[in-house]
Design a protein around this nucleic acid. Structure first.
Ligand code: FES
Ligand code: FES
Lengths: 151, 151
DNA sequence: TTAAACTGATACTATATTGATATCAGATAA
DNA sequence: TTATCTGATATCAATATAGTATCAGTTTAA
């Protein structure tokens, strides 16, 4: 059970790159290099995020992408929604007859409760929060961009 | 994002069938009919559950399957672990170099917290609990096995 | 004593999802 | 006026999910 797919993972990283260069355009190429994301794959993600009004773009030389929202207004819940589809219990409830009385279905009820909890938690994690957390960590080891790779 | 795949979904239902016939063997055919689970698919699931000591079997005529544990000792967390692989954050941490200092990685940290919560919640939901909840619901509408299908 | 009702074990197929590339047209700045 | 960008698609490969088929062996009961 994978919580975050590559798409969401990459999208978060890309947004963190954009958040770090607030106010100026960053090219897909630059983000790709910085975050190690396959270039064309990233392009697709950025276009998807344009459609959802998370970023805006500028074409041509020196063009690129920029956040079109406050980083605190971009939550993981939304990103997961965009790139993985919203959290679903299971498709059991779509099979007619088999789950009669689904309004009272116990299993469904229990899992929707968990769904709630998860969504709430993911909603609290925003790009802004991650950015600040990241800054805090970087402040502790101010030297190079890279530290020793843990086992 | 699908929380429960068919495998887990079906496994839960099968276990509920077994729990309802405590002490006697129930054939895969019977479970398949009762729960609307594709026969051969179900067989595979049952065998997998034997390997994990959740059920035991008896071959031949009048053979079948039986719970080999107390229903309260079978939690959804374990079932998800068996049929969907244990909950993982994302595979980002396996790509060497890209996530240096992963011990302090913010995103990873946040998501592992959620992972904890989810696992705890899933662990609380056992076959025994579902069975009791189910009984309670059935007690409210004691007549036929089926009620009107909600829209 | 044998046929029907079972499970064990495995191989296979189909479909969907995920991850990744490739192309070409058009915009823009130097 | 060309190199650097994005827009928009089309395509492809790898993996995961869902479901089917087959055959061997066990057990019960007629
Ligand atoms: S609605 Fe499907 S298991 Fe209940
Ligand atoms: S360990 Fe991979 S994003 Fe942090």
């Amino acid at each position: 059970m994978k919580v975050l797919t590559k798409k969401t993972d990459y999208a978060i990283r890309a947004l963190l790159s954009l958040a770090a260069s607030k106010g100026s355009y960053v090219s897909a190429k630059a983000i790709s290099a910085e975050q190690g994301i396959p270039y064309q794959f990233l392009r697709g993600l950025l276009q998807e995020m344009i459609r959802h009004n998370l970023v805006s773009s500028k074409e041509g030389v020196q063009g690129g992408f920029m956040l079109s929202k406050n980083p605190d207004e971009i939550g993981l819940k939304q990103l997961i929604g965009i790139f993985q589809g919203k959290v679903e219990v299971s498709e059991c409830m779509f099979r007619k007859q088999l789950c009669a009385n689904r309004a009272k279905c116990v299993l469904r009820h229990e899992i929707m409760r968990i769904e709630q909890v998860v969504n709430n938690e993911f909603d609290k994690i925003t790009i802004g929060k991650l950015q600040r957390d990241l800054d805090a960590v970087n402040a502790l080891r101010p030297a190079s961009g890279n530290v020793e790779e843990p086992k």
